[in-house]
Design a protein around this nucleic acid. Structure first.
Length: 453
RNA sequence: GACAGAGUAGCACAAUGGUAGUGCACUAGAUUGUGGAUCUAGCCGUUGCGGGUUCGAGCCCCGUCUCUGUCCCCA
């Protein structure tokens, strides 16, 4: 019976051309993040389930990949009767990079007071794969811990906005809301605190199913029509109202609700201090934005674009998460870029320029040249800083040149007995067809001028 | 988890229920120190898998698996 050669569902192999594009995007992200003073960390792919469980909400817990006990431990677990899921595993694959960061912060003693870290690693979710959705995918997070200052929010928003701009995205919005403000809206609509969660889930779908859809969903979830209608009315943003106007409207509507004006003031300040950052013109107040993850406590963000039907990234403030691992509460805010979706959209829209995946130089030789001679010269070129591949066999030259072309080489270095004898090398520019024979020592300079020209 | 669509050569796709084909790619030659073009020849298949209907199934029916899309949820 044949073994399937496909990778597991929702997981992918990457061939050189695609991987080169991914590396390019990564390099832009790294450079931009570092320009903001973020420093890199990495954490293990596997975390203890005690770390992961209870941080993402019920649905998130369901989507964790768990790692089964091995050998004796598994045998013992199976003897429980009845066997319960929690007996079978104590570790799982990380679901995001935020919770591992919180654990790391709680576990570390000598971190800077304001720890600005970035992290580009894989995460795993046992989700059903779809367009731009995978079971193994890369996240690119920036987070700032140790301050409640809105400068932190502004900086993470600016960092991701700058990444998008540098990658060639022009039309995108960073939707902005506040978790506590949502809470105020829900209580202003007369909903009980225990209905908050269901209300948020329904409200979050506003973009997709519209007001009627949300109203219907709220009612089927047991929320009285009067409250549901009031909530929708509170959320309704009049056409043409700008960000300041929307905040003023919300402030008026929530004038009797405790704390509301303070949350609105935060959003107002965040907009103000972001004015001259790359995020400034992309921020949009969106009172319907909820975000699923359970740990957010303050401002929340989500990147939207007409180029992709879902979110291109998201984040927010989570002041209580680190405290779940350690008595001391440490405030934090972060933003995660949907790397896979950026790459997907960039491929669809042709935002990648030409990116070379192959060697710069292909060393070809005739059969009257010994392999040792070819390898010696290849190493000389490599020592000069060039990427050189040696054609391993000696078929006729046409075949070697065709291969050089298909491998992505831009220059062929051709070696025959006559060149070796004279201490020369023949160079052929595969792009222009131009050809020249030069002393071996001059070859790197000539190659370099062709590569840059 | 729900619904829809699709699975045919390495890839992209054809084929009224009647001999499974075309293009690209690949190999060789035309062309023994110069690639991309052209021409010639060659290679490539248990039509996802299992059953059924039929004289006969890639095509119709049932089941199953996988993939794609939408929903849900998310990045």
């Amino acid at each position: 019976m044949a073994i399937s050669t496909l990778p597991p569902s929702g997981m992918r192999d990457f061939l050189p051309a695609e991987l080169t594009r991914r590396r390019y995007v990564e390099s832009v992200i790294r450079r931009v993040y570092e320009s903001f003073g973020f420093v890199p960390v990495e954490t293990p792919a596997i975390e203890n389930l005690t770390t992961l469980l209870g941080k993402y909400g019920e649905e998130g817990d369901q989507l964790l990949f768990r790692i089964l006990h091995r050998r004796d431990k598994l045998a013992r677990a199976l003897q429980h009767s009845p066997v319960e899921e929690k007996d079978l595993a104590e570790m799982g694959l990380r679901y995001d990079l935020t919770v591992p960061l919180a654990r790391l912060i709680a576990n570390s003693k000598d971190l800077p007071r304001f720890f600005k870290r970035y992290q580009i690693q894989l995460v795993w979710r046992a989700d059903r794969p779809g367009r731009g959705r995978f079971r193994e995918f890369q996240q690119c997070d920036v987070d700032i811990t140790g301050t409640t200052s809105l400068v932190a929010e502004a900086e993470v928003c600016a960092a991701v906005a700058k990444v998008l701009l540098e990658l060639g995205f022009k039309e995108f919005q960073i939707h902005l809301n506040h978790r506590q403000l949502l809470r105020c809206l829900i209580s202003a609509a007369g909903l009980r605190p225990d209905q908050e969660e269901t209300a948020l889930v329904a409200v979050d779908k506003m973009d997709k199913i519209g007001e009627d859809g949300v109203l219907k969903e709220l009612q089927t979830r047991g929320i009285p029509e009067a409250s549901a209608s009031l909530l929708l009315e509170l959320l309704r943003r009049p056409e043409g109202l700008d960000e300041a106007g929307e905040l003023a409207r919300l402030e008026t509507r929530l004038s009797g609700i405790e704390g509301a004006s303070a949350h609105i003031a935060q959003l107002r300040e965040l907009l103000a201090i972001s004015t001259h950052t790359p995020a400034g013109s992309h921020l949009r107040i969106d009172a319907t934005l909820a975000r699923g993850l359970g740990y957010y406590t303050g401002p929340i963000f989500e990147i939207r674009s007409a180029l992709f039907g879902g979110s291109l990234g998201g984040g927010g403030r989570y002041d209580n998460l680190i405290g779940m691992f350690r008595g001391q509460t440490i405030p934090a805010v972060g933003f995660s870029i949907g790397f896979e979706r950026l790459v997907l959209v960039m491929e669809e829209k042709g935002l990648f320029g030409k990116l070379a995946a192959g060697p710069e130089v292909m060393l070809c030789r005739f059969e009257d040249v010994a392999p040792a001679e070819a390898l010696k010269i290849a190493h000389g070129l490599r020592d000069a800083g060039l990427n050189v591949e040696v054609y391993p066999e000696t078929p006729k030259l046409g075949k070697q040149l065709a291969y050089a072309e298909s491998a992505g080489a831009r220059i062929a270095a051709i070696l025959g007995a006559s060149e070796v004898q004279a201490g020369n090398i023949t160079l052929k520019n595969l792009t222009t067809g131009e050809q020249a024979t030069t002393p071996t020592g001059d070859a790197p300079a000539r190659i370099r001028s062709w590569l840059t020209g």
